[in-house]
Computed example of a mutant assay.
Amino acid sequence: MIAFLGMGLLGSNFVRALISKGESVQVWNRTASKATALETYGAKAFADVTDAVRNADRIHLTLKDDHTVDEVLAAATPGLKPGAVIIDHTTTSAEGAIARTKAWKERGFTYLHAPVFMGPANALESSGNMLVSGDQAVISTWQPALSKMTGMVINLGDAPGKAAGMKLIGNSFLVGLTAALADTLSLAKALEIPVSDVSSLFSSWNPGAALPARLQRMTSGTYNNPSWELNMARKDTQLFIDAAKKGNLTLAVIPAIAAEMDRWIEKGHGNDDWTVIGKNSI
């Protein structure tokens, strides 16, 4: 028996996929209607989280944050089956994942943090990526079951908090990328260039293909053989800002990048490769 706690878009689609594979799933959500909606697909909904986890061999979580995970698990504790495994897909702090792994082991339960790079559609299709780290015996035992839920389970090694950390790193990139795209679209609007033309540009010229080489250059520690000098990158950055201002639009990310560039230029790095602005991060 499987229990699933947290029936948001991700959790509810995980449940639907599990049921389609023949699993029996008990569900709970703080807003009860989100759990009862899954009964249409064959889930059994409970208003009390203690009842939802009763007799379950494994309990999956897709909740909001560290506090919510701790709160819900505390409430569920009286109903937990001895030796049950808790598999947490919530995006949390690394510290929280480490603490829960230790605390639940001391109480006789297995806690495995398994955050995901998956949207609701991936959860329904059992595609995408799931991250795990920590006790390799535990991972070896549960990887076959987790593999049925996702396209790929990525084992990051022995450190129990590493999966949580890598999830945060990935989300940080996605947040930065989306904010940068918002600025890009604002610049296009200011320059009266249609979004369709921007899309066509990125279809022909894929800047994402340069990511591995850019990361290597940024982390090399050597910046005196530039492919794009910081002074020139800063000049272009000002052109972005000026064009947006003329179009009565405000950029969210670029001004902060310009300020960081200015700090490095003041340190004497204007003729270095512009990736020097990431030097203190390595």
Rank of each mutant, 00 (worst) to 15 (best):
K102V: 11
A103E: 15
A103C: 00
A103N: 01
W104P: 09
W104K: 06
W104I: 09
K105G: 10
K105E: 13
R107P: 10
R107E: 09
R107Y: 00
R107L: 10
G108R: 03
T110W: 07
T110D: 09
T110Y: 05
T110L: 14
Y111K: 04
Y111S: 09
Y111W: 11
L112R: 07
H113D: 13
H113K: 12
H113M: 07
H113W: 01
A114M: 06
P115E: 07
V116N: 05
V116A: 06
V116P: 04
V116E: 04
M118H: 06
M118F: 04
M118K: 05
M118V: 01
M118Q: 12
G119V: 14
G119T: 15
P120E: 10
P120V: 00
P120S: 06
A121K: 02
E125V: 05
E125M: 08
S126G: 07
S126L: 08
S127P: 00
S127Q: 05
S127H: 02
G128N: 01
G128W: 09
G128K: 04
N129D: 14
M130H: 05
M130F: 12
V132M: 03
V132S: 04
V132C: 03
V132W: 13
V132Q: 02
S133W: 02
G134P: 07
G134H: 08
D135C: 05
D135R: 03
D135N: 07
Q136L: 10
Q136N: 14
A137D: 11
A137H: 12
A137R: 12
V138L: 07
V138P: 02
V138I: 11
I139F: 05
S140Y: 06
S140A: 15
W142R: 13
W142L: 12
W142A: 01
Q143N: 09
P144M: 08
P144G: 10
S147M: 09
S147D: 12
S147E: 08
K148D: 15
K148S: 14
T150R: 08
T150Y: 11
T150W: 07
G151P: 09
M152Y: 06
M152Q: 11
V153P: 01
V153D: 01
I154T: 01
N155V: 09
N155E: 04
L156Y: 08
L156P: 04
L156I: 14
G157R: 04
G157W: 05
D158Q: 12
A159H: 10
A159I: 13
P160A: 07
P160R: 04
G161T: 00
G161D: 11
G161C: 09
G161W: 03
G161Q: 10
K162W: 05
A163E: 02
A163V: 00
A164V: 05
G165T: 12
G165S: 13
M166R: 06
M166W: 08
K167Q: 11
K167Y: 10
L168V: 06
L168W: 10
I169V: 14
G170D: 03
G170P: 04
G170K: 10
N171K: 06
N171P: 13
S172N: 13
S172Y: 15
F173I: 15
F173V: 12
F173A: 11
L174T: 12
V175A: 13
V175T: 15
L177M: 14
L177R: 01
L177H: 13
L177A: 12
L177G: 08
L177T: 14
T178K: 11
T178L: 11
T178W: 08
A179T: 14
A179N: 15
A180K: 10
A180N: 14
A180P: 07
A180F: 00
A180G: 15
A180H: 04
L181N: 13
L181A: 04
